[in-house]
Amino acid sequence: MTLFAEILIAFFLVVSGIFGLVGSFGLIKLGETMQRLHAPTKATTVGVGGVLIASMLYFLLIEGNLSFHELLITLFLFLTAPITANFVAKTYVARHLKRHDLPETGRAHGWSIYDDPPGRSEDE
């Protein structure tokens, strides 16, 4: 039972290490900024999730006490990773792309970088 638990924890640790390394390597490998946004926000999040699963299994199976702190950290990281990616993408678009470089949105309102959100102009 202990050997099985050790194999499981070591498997999660190795997989998460490889995922984290791939995520950070994609940051220097990919060419454009918008392509570079893919690697860290996905692969590194999966890597940290694997580390947290390994930590939870270690404290449950080896030490013998269950803790829920890891679930809090996982929830926080999974909530904040898309918001961070959205903000970085908006920063890049606002700094490097003009209005005529962007495609049409197909809606009544334009891109949020250049146009006010719906209902904003009536309030002010």
């Binding site: 860290p40 590194t44 940290v48």
Partner: peptide, 20 residues
């Protein structure tokens, strides 16, 4: 600068993994 923000955010995530 968007690249630098992204790299700093990835660095924070890696540091979280190292702490755990």
């Amino acid at each position: 600068s968007a690249d630098r923000i992204l790299a700093l955010d990835t660095m924070v995530i890696n540091i979280i993994a190292l702490l755990i």
